[in-house]
Each structure stands twice: as C-alpha cells, then as structure tokens.
Design a protein around this nucleic acid. Sequence first.
DNA 1: CATGAATGAGGTTTCATTCAT
DNA 2: AATGAATGAAACCTCATTCAT
Lengths: 219, 219, 219, 219
Amino acid sequence: MPTQKQPTQSPATSPVARKQKKPPAPPSPERRAELLGIAAEVFAEQGYNATTVRKIADAAGMLAGSLYYHFDSKESMLEEILRTFLTELWDGYDAVLAAPLGPRETLEALVTESFREIDRHRAAVAIYQKESRHLVTQTRFEYLLESQRRFEKTWLTTLERGVSDGVFRADLDVRLTYRFVRDTVWVAASWYRPGGGHSPEEIARQYLSMVLDGIAVRA
Amino acid sequence: MPTQKQPTQSPATSPVARKQKKPPAPPSPERRAELLGIAAEVFAEQGYNATTVRKIADAAGMLAGSLYYHFDSKESMLEEILRTFLTELWDGYDAVLAAPLGPRETLEALVTESFREIDRHRAAVAIYQKESRHLVTQTRFEYLLESQRRFEKTWLTTLERGVSDGVFRADLDVRLTYRFVRDTVWVAASWYRPGGGHSPEEIARQYLSMVLDGIAVRA
Amino acid sequence: MPTQKQPTQSPATSPVARKQKKPPAPPSPERRAELLGIAAEVFAEQGYNATTVRKIADAAGMLAGSLYYHFDSKESMLEEILRTFLTELWDGYDAVLAAPLGPRETLEALVTESFREIDRHRAAVAIYQKESRHLVTQTRFEYLLESQRRFEKTWLTTLERGVSDGVFRADLDVRLTYRFVRDTVWVAASWYRPGGGHSPEEIARQYLSMVLDGIAVRA
Amino acid sequence: MPTQKQPTQSPATSPVARKQKKPPAPPSPERRAELLGIAAEVFAEQGYNATTVRKIADAAGMLAGSLYYHFDSKESMLEEILRTFLTELWDGYDAVLAAPLGPRETLEALVTESFREIDRHRAAVAIYQKESRHLVTQTRFEYLLESQRRFEKTWLTTLERGVSDGVFRADLDVRLTYRFVRDTVWVAASWYRPGGGHSPEEIARQYLSMVLDGIAVRA
DNA sequence: CATGAATGAGGTTTCATTCAT
DNA sequence: AATGAATGAAACCTCATTCAT
C-alpha cells in the first residue's frame, strides 16, 4: 500500500495534474544551497557533533523541524557539504594535472588551487579537517577514503617526479614531505578568513616560497 | 571453597602470572593518571563530543558511573588532560627559552621539544588541535587562551629576532611564517605514532630541514 | 479510514462531550500553565525531590523528554510554580494592605485572603511549605527570602499596631504570636481539599474565631 | 539457619574463641545513636530524599560506605529515627493520659509534653512533619499510620470531653479545632532551636494562652 | 571499624527526528 | 514551507549499596 499511490486512486476526479501532495514541491535547490552554506558555517565553528540541528535552524531563522523539509537528516547535510567540496576540488586538481607541467610547476599549481578552494569552501575544508578521520569509518563516507588515496597518490607522484628530475631535494623522506606540504596547506583553513588582507594567490605564493626555499637565509 | 584461600593454594603452581594481580590499594593519583590516559586515547580517536563516558569506561574495563568516583565530569577529565599537557609543554619550552641561544638554535630547540611533547602526549596534542578552538569560549578553559597567547608571543619574538639577526629571510610575512611553522609542527600529532620508525628527534631534524632550507634543490 | 473524518462523522451523534476535545493549536502559555498545574499536584503529593520528571510526564500523558519542549528543567518548573503563586499572593495582600483598615480587620482580611490563596494554589502552598526552607539557600530562589521577609514585616507590623491600639493582648510575645498565626494558617494547605465541605471564607471565619478568642469558654 | 552459627562449624580447629569474623563486633549502640543523631540533623535540614548518605557520612567524618557497618540502609536509619521518637512520645503521652486530669488540664499537659518532645527530638519531629505523608504509603512505615490514628483519637476525645464538660467552646468544629491545635504545636519544630531563649515549658505556656484564650483582648 | 573502589539502577537532560496542521 | 508539539533513544550523572582489604 504505497503512500504515493494514494493520489492515483482518484485521478479521474481531478483531471488536471495538480501539484503532488506529499512532496508538495521539490525543495528549491537554491534554498538548499543557502541552508547548506549556513550549516557548513556552524559545523565548522562548533564541530559536527557539537552542532545541534537547532543551532543550524536558529542560524537560518527557522525551527529545527523545518530543516527536514529540505534534508533527510543532519548527516546528509554533512555529506552533501563534503561531497560538493570534494567534487569541486577535484575539478580544479584535474585541470591542473591535465596540463603539461613540470613537477615544480605542478606543485605550485596544486598549492595555488588548494588555497583557492579554501577561499571558496573554507567551512567545508575546516569540517573536512576536523571530522574526516572518524567519518571514513562509516560506509556512507567511504568516498572520503577514495579521495584521500587519490590525493596522496597525486602528491606523492608529483614529489617523486620532482626528485627524479632533480628539482626537489633527494635527501628528504618523501612521505614526510608529503604530509608536511599537505598539512601546511590545508590547516590554513582553520585561520583563513576570506576577504582578509591576502588573496588566495598571495598566500599561495608566500607558502610556496617557504616550502620551496625555506625560511633560513641562504648561506 | 573460600575465595580468600585461592592465593594460598597455588601461588607457585601457576607459573603464568595471570593478568598481573593489581596492587592491593592503588593510590588514587596513579589510578587517575591511568584513567586519564585511557580517556585521552578515546578523545583523540573519536573526538571529545563523540566520545561517550561509556566508551571511556569500556576501555577502562569498568562501568560508566564508576568513572565518577575519580572525576567530577567528562569535562573535568578533558580539562585535566589538557592542563597536564600544557603544564609539561611549558616546562620544556621554558627550559629552552632560559638557555642563551641564538634565534635559529632557539627555533630548532623549540621544534625538537615540540616533537618530544607530541611523543609523550600524542593524544592530548591531538585533542588540543581538534577541540581548543571552541573550548576557549568557555570560562573553564580560558587558560588555553593564555597559553595560546604566550605561545604566539614566544614564536613571534624568536622569528623577529632571527630576522633582525639576519638568519631568517626578511621578505616573509612573520605572522604567516609563524602559522606555517606552528601548524607544520603540531599537525604531526594527527598521524604520529610513538614507537613507529622515527624518533621525535629524527622527525624534528627532517622538519627543520624542510622549514629552514625548503624542499627545492638550491639553485 | 482517515483519522480526520472522525470529528465530522459524529459531532452531533455523541451527546456526551467526551473529554473536551483539545483546541487544535493550544497556544504555548496555556499549555505551560496546564502542565505546571499537573506538575504542582505531583510535587505537592510526593515532594519535589521524590518526584521524577517521568511521573510528571505520566500525569500529563506524555514522555519525560517532551516536557523539555516547554520547560528548561525540573527546577524551572518548580520556580515558575512558586513565583506565580507568590506574585498572586502579594497582589491579594497588597490590596488588603492598601485599604484603610484597623489592625484587627487587617488581620482578618489577611487570614481570609490567605485561605483564598490556599484554595486557588493549594499545591503551590503545600510545596512552598515543604521545600522553601532548603530552597532559599540557592541563588535562584532568593526571591523566596525577600517574600518571607516582607511577609514577616507585614504581619509583625499588623500585630504591633493591634497591641498599640489595645485590640490585641499585650502580654504575648509578638514574634511567637506571629509564628503561631502564620503556621496555623498555612499548614492548612496540607489537609485542605478545595471543593470539600468548607469554603475558604468559612474556614477563615472558624480559624479567626479560634485565634482571636481562643478555644476555651470564657470565664 | 542462623548466621551466627557459622563459626560453630570449625570450632575444634580454633580452641580459643576469637572474635567472630562475620559481624566482627556488634556495632556499639552508642555509636549507632550518635550516628542517628547526626543523620537526623541532616535529614531535617535537607529533607530525606535530598540527603545523600555521603552527606551523612561527611557530617560524621567517615566515608559513605562505612555507614553500612552500622546500618542496613538509608531507609532503616530513617525508620529508627522516627520509631525512637514515636516510642518516647507515646511514653510521655501515656503518662499524661494515665493521670486523672480534666480535659483542660489534659490538653495543657499534652501540649507541654509535646513541646518537651520537640525539645528533645527536634530533628525527628521536623522529619516527621515533612516526610510522614508519603512514608505512610510504604508497608515499612505503617506504624506511622497507627500512631497518627491513635494521636487523632486521643486529641479528639480530649476535645470532645472538654466540650461536654463545658470547658471548651461548643460552637467550634471539633475536627478543625483538632487540626488547629495539632498544627499549631508541631510546626514549632520547624523554627524551634533548643537552647534558645525559651524553655519548652515557657513556649507551651504561651501557646496554651493563645490557643485557650485567643489573641484578642477580651471585650 | 573504616577505606577505597566499584556496581547498577535510575534520574535529568539533550537531541535528531516525525508529523499533523 | 514552515510551525508547534511530541517521540524515543541515548547521553551524562547521581547515589544507595557492596565488598575486599
């Protein structure tokens, strides 16, 4: 006895296909995106677990229950936030990787692209940093693992290419270097404020300068 | 079959010391420390909010309520974990700062000391990284703020001294460099596993090499 | 078998209005008051501490957690019950005190008003009697202390005026008399049942007769 | 199968009657009484339910668990406190009732005796006032009900005798008068402090003066 | 007698979620 | 789309009680 069939029982009485009753109107994508943005802010600020749906609703100027018109659950909001971010992140990375660049230029482009993503998805990045570790244990978030593996492979390959080509130092532990660069870049999301003094490109340049040449004055 | 006779019956007949008879009356402070260690692991693994006291109790082999014989609340466990860590951290830092070192040596010593603290207090550091941002808003955790401020001042001073002395590059944004170094070091807690291949000192050396001289091959 | 049809089916066929269909959307304040009334009964019956929120919820036909939609805590329910009572009590007292009455008439009017309050707020009075002593130690309930002090002053003044005017005996300890009258009146809440044989005014008359003229036959 | 027989099982092995193991020494009655006194104070002060055994133990300078060497349970402490009080109360009342007194003298003697009991068992009386209502529902405390009934009968009889004899006013509701006198007397336990300015006999005299002759100046 | 540690039941509270309106 | 009210599971915490030492 499917719930949705109910309207079909008396279709003759209503010849005009009037808006279905149960999902009265597919919640507008714009509103969804708006609400997800708000939710992401709160998640990033307070942590996913510490964020109650009531806090999100407050921030959105509605009541907690009303969110369920737009989303299945609190978790699905989180999922959509992270998935959206990762999708766009890989769009950017893929564009970089498709270009015929040397290892050093690739690294520079990846870092720059990363800061651009931080600029656009600051909240999502912050959430990712804080929550991904324990989310990956849930089947629903397995795609995080895939992304992580691809990410690691991308960076390791780039670094190794650089070492082979003689543009990166060979005396460093590549895994350690990978973590070093990765953390260095992404942790910025915890303090970066879009619209602050620095553009993503500027920050990228400074970071690259440090990472590539070090902070010590050359002998 | 009196329970009390058991030890007298086969002290020598059971060659295997099964499960280490717990000392007759373990003085409170040691048990506290033991339990705090367990709690810290769980907090670090799952996040403070996602950790239920039941999980901690399970890990400690007791019932949830029993924890309250030793601690006032879940929060007070967190507090004690972080406070203990910060106290020891500053003991180490103060020793470094008291020594008559140049800015570069100071930076090297601070980084090395930091990795030693990560080695000793991995869980606490991980917790600190994840939770401090929203904890500082609570009066109970205001001491985190003080520590942060002192921390920042210490590092900024060291970096500025280095720039003045001409041992650090003058073309870098000092605040950005501070964050760079800070994050670089502490995020290591999220993947560092004591007893793994690298000693804290080795890791410190590699990190310092990267931070000071960069990863690019010198022109 | 739509649930909604039920009212339309037999609105007139059921002569007995069974259990008073609750209004479609009872505005919050009324529901609050209703629930507070229920809670007050249970508190009065079993004592505040012995009353579990589950008992209140049972009495209200809901689940324990549901109460928290309306109230912050069990304690805040108690607070609101007592505060409401005291507010109305003082409204009544103030009206009496504003009238140009002699001390004996004032005393009579205060006693009568008191019995009326017992009639209207029996549960709250009983709770007040049982719990106020240890509640006053909590800052949240400091207003009870203020009320008590004002209460005492009001009665002492009235009694003293009566002694000065020669309508009350001068050979009695005024403080003792105050306690005597006070207790005599309020303890009635512990056995008074509204709708019983006596109206508040009748009880007041009898009490006043005893208090003013004694129970002994005049010599 | 009396518990105490257990040691008789191996009497031959220990020719010397050494202190029994299980109940190592029947807890001394003096210590019991002392602890009960302390418990009564705390019960009276905070209410039975709000009193934790830890609070009692604190007041007694011991740990919560240690109380269980002396008493079976928190409830049994309460029971013993109330039973002791009621036993002594009825000893006093019975002595009064055995004397060949007229109704007015009986009433005076009962009231005086009551204030003496309040003087000796203030805490117990206060507890009785606060808790008896809901205790009587438990089988363990049924004796409270019996006492109450006997109490009521005693007083009603005395009052009725007085009315018959023409020493008490006939125009009063006897039940109401009973409650009036009863409450008037016992509520005093809530503010009475032994060793204060008034002896029990003095207070009794004042109370009797008010109850018998009223507070109004005789016309 | 008393302690230190633990148990286990139950209490208050929180919160994601549902649903009729 | 959103509200208001409620659910139910699970969380934190309390506390009477037990027991080996």
